[in-house]
């Protein structure tokens, strides 16, 4: 079993990146259909990083963000976190509800529910693509939405890896609307045992 994520080879990392590509490509398409707008995605990043670097990816541990969290069970237990800034969450909710952009920065119940649903669809399509590709069964939990500091939303999820190591494997995708607008970050954080299942399914478990 891969005990230390730093033991992963270049081929294994590339295979994981490819999963991110396929998953996020499908998720971006779903998001585009939902918002009837063009959604692009960045080249996925696969990172093996110390815990406190993860929050840096979204701007720092005390930056207020919206997080949609899913526990994934089945063939490869994992965690999915979709994180976006509060302004982008408001924008995404308005796009989904067919409202003109208000440039507001507070989320009501309706907006929270819309963002949870967007998270649901994004993670669902991501997992479906991953499941098709690997022939694995992957079942997401219902979404849990939180609006709080990035570090606080992340640390409960990261703590689960603390018993095993000091590093975490993060598959990161950024979705963009237009040229510049970063809509959000999607993190797939497989549990250590699950990583072996994924690598085996991809045929690169050596």
């Amino acid at each position: 079993m891969i005990e230390d994520f730093r033991d992963l080879s270049g081929i294994q990392l590339d295979a994981l990146k490819e999963i991110g590509n396929i998953g996020a490509g499908n998720a971006a398409t779903a998001l585009a259909v939902m918002t009837q707008d063009r959604i692009d995605m960045s080249v996925p990043q696969v990172g093996i990083m110390p815990f406190d670097k993860v929050a840096e990816l979204v701007g720092g541990p005390d930056i207020p963000v919206v997080g949609v969290y899913f526990q994934v069970t089945g063939s490869a237990n994992s965690n999915i976190l979709f994180i976006l800034s509060i302004e982008k969450a408001v924008l995404l909710a308005e796009l989904l509800m067919g409202l003109p952009p208000s440039h507001g920065n507070s989320l009501g119940d309706m907006e929270m529910s819309a963002v949870a649903e967007a998270g649901n669809i994004i993670s669902g399509t991501y997992l479906n693509a991953l499941a098709m590709f690997t022939q694995m069964t992957l079942i997401p939990s219902v979404p849990a939405v939180g609006v709080d500091m990035a570090g606080a939303l992340l640390d409960g999820v990261l703590a689960r890896y603390g018993e095993i190591g000091d590093y975490v494997l993060v598959l990161e995708n950024m979705f963009k609307k237009g040229d510049l607008d970063v809509i959000g970050h999607l993190f797939l954080i497989p549990e250590p045992g699950a990583l072996d299942s994924i690598l085996t399914a991809l045929g690169v478990n050596y």
């Binding site: 997080g67 526990q71 939990s141 849990a144 939303l153």
Partner: peptide, 13 residues
Amino acid sequence: QMFNIGSSEIMKI
């Protein structure tokens, strides 16, 4: 406890 999913002990860290 930031996210309330089920009652799993892990989340009650």
